[in-house]
Design a protein around this nucleic acid. Structure first.
Lengths: 146, 146
DNA sequence: GGTGAAACGGATTCACT
DNA sequence: AGTGAATCCGTTTCACC
Protein backbone atom coordinates (compact mmCIF):
# COMPACT_ATOMS: atom_id res chain seq x y z
CA UNK A 1 0.00 0.00 0.00
CA UNK A 2 2.15 2.84 -1.23
CA UNK A 3 1.14 6.42 -1.84
CA UNK A 4 0.25 5.75 -5.47
CA UNK A 5 -2.34 3.17 -4.43
CA UNK A 6 -3.73 5.62 -1.90
CA UNK A 7 -4.09 8.26 -4.60
CA UNK A 8 -5.80 5.75 -6.90
CA UNK A 9 -8.24 4.76 -4.15
CA UNK A 10 -8.91 8.41 -3.28
CA UNK A 11 -9.64 9.23 -6.92
CA UNK A 12 -11.89 6.18 -7.37
CA UNK A 13 -13.72 7.07 -4.21
CA UNK A 14 -14.57 10.47 -5.67
CA UNK A 15 -15.52 8.99 -9.02
CA UNK A 16 -15.57 5.24 -9.42
CA UNK A 17 -16.15 5.54 -13.17
CA UNK A 18 -12.96 7.48 -13.95
CA UNK A 19 -10.89 5.89 -16.74
CA UNK A 20 -7.55 4.16 -16.20
CA UNK A 21 -6.04 6.69 -18.59
CA UNK A 22 -7.17 9.56 -16.35
CA UNK A 23 -5.95 7.77 -13.24
CA UNK A 24 -2.65 7.27 -15.00
CA UNK A 25 -2.28 11.03 -15.50
CA UNK A 26 -3.00 11.64 -11.80
CA UNK A 27 -0.32 9.24 -10.56
CA UNK A 28 2.12 9.57 -13.49
CA UNK A 29 1.78 5.98 -14.58
CA UNK A 30 0.59 4.30 -17.76
CA UNK A 31 -2.97 2.99 -18.08
CA UNK A 32 -1.89 -0.70 -17.98
CA UNK A 33 0.14 -0.06 -14.82
CA UNK A 34 -2.89 1.51 -13.13
CA UNK A 35 -5.14 -1.33 -14.27
CA UNK A 36 -2.72 -3.88 -12.84
CA UNK A 37 -2.55 -2.08 -9.47
CA UNK A 38 -6.34 -1.94 -9.28
CA UNK A 39 -6.61 -5.61 -10.20
CA UNK A 40 -4.32 -6.45 -7.29
CA UNK A 41 -6.20 -4.19 -4.87
CA UNK A 42 -9.42 -5.94 -5.90
CA UNK A 43 -8.06 -9.46 -5.48
CA UNK A 44 -6.54 -8.51 -2.11
CA UNK A 45 -10.00 -7.31 -1.06
CA UNK A 46 -8.84 -3.77 -0.31
CA UNK A 47 -11.29 -2.63 -2.98
CA UNK A 48 -14.40 -4.73 -2.40
CA UNK A 49 -16.60 -3.16 -5.07
CA UNK A 50 -17.87 -0.12 -6.88
CA UNK A 51 -21.11 1.50 -5.84
CA UNK A 52 -23.53 4.30 -6.51
CA UNK A 53 -24.33 7.37 -4.49
CA UNK A 54 -28.08 7.88 -4.80
CA UNK A 55 -30.59 10.36 -3.49
CA UNK A 56 -32.92 8.21 -1.40
CA UNK A 57 -35.37 11.09 -1.21
CA UNK A 58 -35.74 11.23 -5.00
CA UNK A 59 -36.04 7.45 -5.16
CA UNK A 60 -39.13 7.64 -2.96
CA UNK A 61 -37.55 6.99 0.46
CA UNK A 62 -37.84 10.37 2.18
CA UNK A 63 -37.48 9.00 5.69
CA UNK A 64 -34.25 7.59 7.13
CA UNK A 65 -34.24 6.44 10.73
CA UNK A 66 -31.65 5.06 13.12
CA UNK A 67 -32.94 2.43 15.51
CA UNK A 68 -31.08 1.30 18.59
CA UNK A 69 -32.11 -2.25 19.34
CA UNK A 70 -31.54 -3.98 22.66
CA UNK A 71 -31.90 -7.53 21.47
CA UNK A 72 -33.31 -10.14 23.86
CA UNK A 73 -30.61 -12.57 25.02
CA UNK A 74 -32.17 -15.58 23.30
CA UNK A 75 -33.18 -13.80 20.11
CA UNK A 76 -29.88 -12.56 18.67
CA UNK A 77 -29.67 -15.13 15.87
CA UNK A 78 -33.30 -14.55 14.87
CA UNK A 79 -32.80 -10.80 15.03
CA UNK A 80 -29.88 -10.92 12.58
CA UNK A 81 -31.91 -13.07 10.20
CA UNK A 82 -34.75 -10.55 10.42
CA UNK A 83 -32.35 -7.70 9.59
CA UNK A 84 -31.18 -9.50 6.45
CA UNK A 85 -34.75 -10.28 5.44
CA UNK A 86 -36.16 -6.84 6.18
CA UNK A 87 -35.91 -4.98 2.90
CA UNK A 88 -35.96 -1.51 4.45
CA UNK A 89 -32.81 -2.17 6.47
CA UNK A 90 -29.88 -0.48 4.76
CA UNK A 91 -27.33 -0.88 7.56
CA UNK A 92 -27.13 -3.00 10.69
CA UNK A 93 -24.17 -2.72 13.04
CA UNK A 94 -23.49 -4.91 16.05
CA UNK A 95 -22.12 -2.50 18.63
CA UNK A 96 -20.72 -2.74 22.13
CA UNK A 97 -23.24 -2.43 24.95
CA UNK A 98 -25.82 -4.89 26.17
CA UNK A 99 -26.98 -6.89 23.15
CA UNK A 100 -27.01 -3.68 21.16
CA UNK A 101 -27.46 -3.19 17.44
CA UNK A 102 -27.79 0.02 15.51
CA UNK A 103 -29.98 -0.23 12.42
CA UNK A 104 -30.44 2.29 9.61
CA UNK A 105 -33.83 2.13 7.87
CA UNK A 106 -35.00 3.89 4.70
CA UNK A 107 -38.78 4.02 4.32
CA UNK A 108 -41.47 5.55 2.15
CA UNK A 109 -43.79 6.62 4.95
CA UNK A 110 -44.22 6.83 8.71
CA UNK A 111 -46.85 4.11 8.46
CA UNK A 112 -44.24 1.81 6.95
CA UNK A 113 -41.74 2.76 9.66
CA UNK A 114 -44.34 2.01 12.30
CA UNK A 115 -44.96 -1.46 10.85
CA UNK A 116 -41.26 -2.25 10.69
CA UNK A 117 -40.60 -1.09 14.25
CA UNK A 118 -43.51 -3.25 15.40
CA UNK A 119 -41.87 -6.26 13.70
CA UNK A 120 -38.66 -5.52 15.60
CA UNK A 121 -40.46 -5.82 18.95
CA UNK A 122 -40.46 -9.62 18.65
CA UNK A 123 -36.69 -9.57 19.06
CA UNK A 124 -35.72 -6.39 20.84
CA UNK A 125 -36.54 -3.18 22.64
CA UNK A 126 -36.14 -0.26 20.26
CA UNK A 127 -35.23 3.38 20.49
CA UNK A 128 -35.75 5.30 17.25
CA UNK A 129 -34.07 8.50 16.04
CA UNK A 130 -35.04 10.20 12.80
CA UNK A 131 -32.19 11.51 10.65
CA UNK A 132 -32.81 15.22 10.01
CA UNK A 133 -29.69 15.89 7.96
CA UNK A 134 -26.29 14.41 7.26
CA UNK A 135 -23.59 17.12 7.41
CA UNK A 136 -20.76 14.64 6.68
CA UNK A 137 -20.82 11.48 4.56
CA UNK A 138 -17.50 10.07 3.38
CA UNK A 139 -16.55 6.49 2.51
CA UNK A 140 -13.04 6.79 3.87
CA UNK A 141 -11.41 8.96 6.58
CA UNK A 142 -9.72 12.06 5.16
CA UNK A 143 -6.49 11.26 6.97
CA UNK A 144 -6.09 8.69 4.26
CA UNK A 145 -5.33 11.31 1.62
CA UNK A 146 -2.19 12.63 3.31
CA UNK B 1 -38.63 6.73 -12.74
CA UNK B 2 -39.82 3.63 -14.52
CA UNK B 3 -38.80 0.05 -13.90
CA UNK B 4 -35.97 0.21 -16.42
CA UNK B 5 -34.33 3.06 -14.50
CA UNK B 6 -34.75 1.10 -11.29
CA UNK B 7 -33.01 -1.90 -12.86
CA UNK B 8 -30.20 0.33 -14.13
CA UNK B 9 -29.72 1.85 -10.67
CA UNK B 10 -29.82 -1.57 -9.02
CA UNK B 11 -27.17 -2.88 -11.42
CA UNK B 12 -24.94 0.17 -10.99
CA UNK B 13 -25.30 -0.13 -7.25
CA UNK B 14 -23.93 -3.67 -7.40
CA UNK B 15 -21.15 -2.65 -9.80
CA UNK B 16 -20.72 1.01 -10.65
CA UNK B 17 -18.12 0.18 -13.31
CA UNK B 18 -20.38 -2.01 -15.46
CA UNK B 19 -20.42 -0.91 -19.12
CA UNK B 20 -23.39 0.67 -20.86
CA UNK B 21 -23.30 -2.24 -23.28
CA UNK B 22 -23.76 -4.71 -20.40
CA UNK B 23 -26.49 -2.58 -18.84
CA UNK B 24 -28.19 -2.52 -22.23
CA UNK B 25 -28.33 -6.33 -22.28
CA UNK B 26 -29.87 -6.36 -18.79
CA UNK B 27 -32.69 -3.99 -19.66
CA UNK B 28 -33.07 -4.89 -23.36
CA UNK B 29 -32.04 -1.47 -24.61
CA UNK B 30 -29.18 -0.21 -26.75
CA UNK B 31 -26.03 1.26 -25.19
CA UNK B 32 -26.84 4.84 -26.30
CA UNK B 33 -30.33 4.55 -24.78
CA UNK B 34 -28.86 3.46 -21.45
CA UNK B 35 -26.24 6.22 -21.55
CA UNK B 36 -28.96 8.81 -22.15
CA UNK B 37 -31.09 7.52 -19.25
CA UNK B 38 -28.09 7.62 -16.92
CA UNK B 39 -27.18 11.13 -18.08
CA UNK B 40 -30.70 12.26 -17.14
CA UNK B 41 -30.60 10.49 -13.76
CA UNK B 42 -27.30 12.25 -13.06
CA UNK B 43 -28.50 15.70 -14.01
CA UNK B 44 -31.70 15.20 -12.01
CA UNK B 45 -29.49 14.34 -9.02
CA UNK B 46 -31.03 10.89 -8.53
CA UNK B 47 -27.55 9.51 -9.14
CA UNK B 48 -25.22 11.82 -7.22
CA UNK B 49 -21.97 9.99 -7.89
CA UNK B 50 -20.03 6.76 -8.16
CA UNK B 51 -18.03 5.49 -5.23
CA UNK B 52 -15.81 2.73 -3.96
CA UNK B 53 -16.44 0.03 -1.39
CA UNK B 54 -13.21 -0.34 0.57
CA UNK B 55 -12.01 -2.48 3.44
CA UNK B 56 -11.18 0.09 6.14
CA UNK B 57 -9.41 -2.62 8.09
CA UNK B 58 -6.96 -3.31 5.27
CA UNK B 59 -6.45 0.40 4.74
CA UNK B 60 -5.15 0.70 8.28
CA UNK B 61 -8.36 1.79 10.06
CA UNK B 62 -9.25 -1.28 12.13
CA UNK B 63 -11.47 0.61 14.56
CA UNK B 64 -14.87 2.05 13.69
CA UNK B 65 -16.87 3.74 16.42
CA UNK B 66 -20.30 5.34 16.66
CA UNK B 67 -20.47 8.36 18.92
CA UNK B 68 -23.70 9.87 20.19
CA UNK B 69 -23.10 13.54 20.82
CA UNK B 70 -25.38 15.73 22.92
CA UNK B 71 -24.23 19.07 21.62
CA UNK B 72 -24.32 22.08 23.95
CA UNK B 73 -27.09 24.54 23.00
CA UNK B 74 -24.66 27.30 22.03
CA UNK B 75 -22.11 25.12 20.27
CA UNK B 76 -24.06 23.51 17.45
CA UNK B 77 -22.51 25.60 14.67
CA UNK B 78 -18.99 25.05 16.00
CA UNK B 79 -19.68 21.35 16.42
CA UNK B 80 -20.68 20.96 12.76
CA UNK B 81 -17.55 22.81 11.66
CA UNK B 82 -15.47 20.50 13.84
CA UNK B 83 -17.10 17.44 12.24
CA UNK B 84 -16.19 18.68 8.76
CA UNK B 85 -12.64 19.47 9.86
CA UNK B 86 -12.08 16.25 11.78
CA UNK B 87 -10.50 13.88 9.27
CA UNK B 88 -11.50 10.71 11.08
CA UNK B 89 -15.23 11.51 10.84
CA UNK B 90 -16.73 9.46 8.04
CA UNK B 91 -20.39 10.14 8.80
CA UNK B 92 -22.23 12.71 10.88
CA UNK B 93 -26.02 12.66 11.16
CA UNK B 94 -28.17 15.24 12.85
CA UNK B 95 -30.89 13.20 14.54
CA UNK B 96 -34.01 13.90 16.55
CA UNK B 97 -33.56 14.16 20.29
CA UNK B 98 -32.03 16.91 22.36
CA UNK B 99 -29.23 18.48 20.27
CA UNK B 100 -28.27 15.00 19.17
CA UNK B 101 -25.81 13.95 16.51
CA UNK B 102 -24.58 10.49 15.63
CA UNK B 103 -21.02 10.37 14.34
CA UNK B 104 -19.15 7.48 12.71
CA UNK B 105 -15.39 7.53 13.19
CA UNK B 106 -12.70 5.37 11.57
CA UNK B 107 -9.40 5.37 13.42
CA UNK B 108 -6.03 3.65 13.45
CA UNK B 109 -5.76 3.13 17.19
CA UNK B 110 -7.55 3.52 20.51
CA UNK B 111 -5.14 6.31 21.38
CA UNK B 112 -6.30 8.21 18.32
CA UNK B 113 -9.94 7.57 19.25
CA UNK B 114 -9.26 8.83 22.74
CA UNK B 115 -7.76 12.07 21.40
CA UNK B 116 -10.67 12.65 19.04
CA UNK B 117 -13.29 12.01 21.71
CA UNK B 118 -11.46 14.45 23.96
CA UNK B 119 -11.69 17.10 21.21
CA UNK B 120 -15.45 16.50 21.04
CA UNK B 121 -15.87 17.41 24.71
CA UNK B 122 -15.51 21.11 23.88
CA UNK B 123 -18.84 20.94 22.08
CA UNK B 124 -20.81 18.02 23.45
CA UNK B 125 -21.29 15.17 25.86
CA UNK B 126 -20.42 11.91 24.16
CA UNK B 127 -21.47 8.30 24.38
CA UNK B 128 -19.30 5.94 22.36
CA UNK B 129 -20.14 2.52 20.93
CA UNK B 130 -17.58 0.38 19.12
CA UNK B 131 -18.76 -1.38 15.96
CA UNK B 132 -18.07 -5.10 16.38
CA UNK B 133 -19.50 -6.23 13.05
CA UNK B 134 -21.83 -5.05 10.31
CA UNK B 135 -24.26 -7.82 9.32
CA UNK B 136 -26.06 -5.62 6.74
CA UNK B 137 -24.64 -2.82 4.60
CA UNK B 138 -26.64 -1.78 1.53
CA UNK B 139 -26.75 1.57 -0.25
CA UNK B 140 -30.43 1.33 -1.11
CA UNK B 141 -33.42 -0.46 0.47
CA UNK B 142 -34.13 -3.80 -1.15
CA UNK B 143 -37.79 -2.95 -1.65
CA UNK B 144 -36.46 -0.86 -4.45
CA UNK B 145 -35.67 -3.87 -6.61
CA UNK B 146 -39.30 -5.09 -6.84
C1' DG C 1 -37.16 8.04 -26.48
C1' DG C 2 -35.41 4.68 -29.12
C1' DT C 3 -32.16 2.35 -32.93
C1' DG C 4 -28.05 1.08 -35.75
C1' DA C 5 -23.67 2.46 -37.96
C1' DA C 6 -19.45 5.01 -37.89
C1' DA C 7 -15.89 7.40 -35.57
C1' DC C 8 -13.47 7.85 -31.55
C1' DG C 9 -11.14 6.84 -27.32
C1' DG C 10 -10.08 3.90 -23.56
C1' DA C 11 -8.99 -1.01 -22.10
C1' DT C 12 -6.30 -4.95 -22.75
C1' DT C 13 -2.65 -7.72 -24.34
C1' DC C 14 2.04 -8.45 -25.22
C1' DA C 15 6.92 -8.08 -26.14
C1' DC C 16 10.46 -5.72 -23.96
C1' DT C 17 12.82 -3.66 -19.98
C1' DA D 1 6.55 -3.53 -11.76
C1' DG D 2 6.23 -0.47 -15.64
C1' DT D 3 6.25 0.98 -20.73
C1' DG D 4 4.64 1.65 -25.50
C1' DA D 5 2.31 -0.23 -29.52
C1' DA D 6 -1.35 -2.87 -31.45
C1' DT D 7 -5.67 -4.79 -31.05
C1' DC D 8 -10.11 -4.94 -29.24
C1' DC D 9 -14.16 -3.27 -27.34
C1' DG D 10 -17.17 0.15 -25.43
C1' DT D 11 -18.70 4.90 -25.82
C1' DT D 12 -20.35 8.63 -28.34
C1' DT D 13 -22.33 10.94 -32.08
C1' DC D 14 -25.61 11.26 -35.53
C1' DA D 15 -29.08 10.38 -39.03
C1' DC D 16 -33.33 8.15 -38.89
C1' DC D 17 -37.62 6.27 -36.86
Amino acid sequence: MDNINRKIIAALQQNARISYAELGKLVHLSAPAVAERIRKLESAGVISGYSLKVDLDQLGYPIVALVQCKVFRTKEREFKAHMLACKSVIECHNVTGEQAFLVKLAVQSMKQLDNILESFLDFSDTNTMMILSTPVDRAVPQTFYD
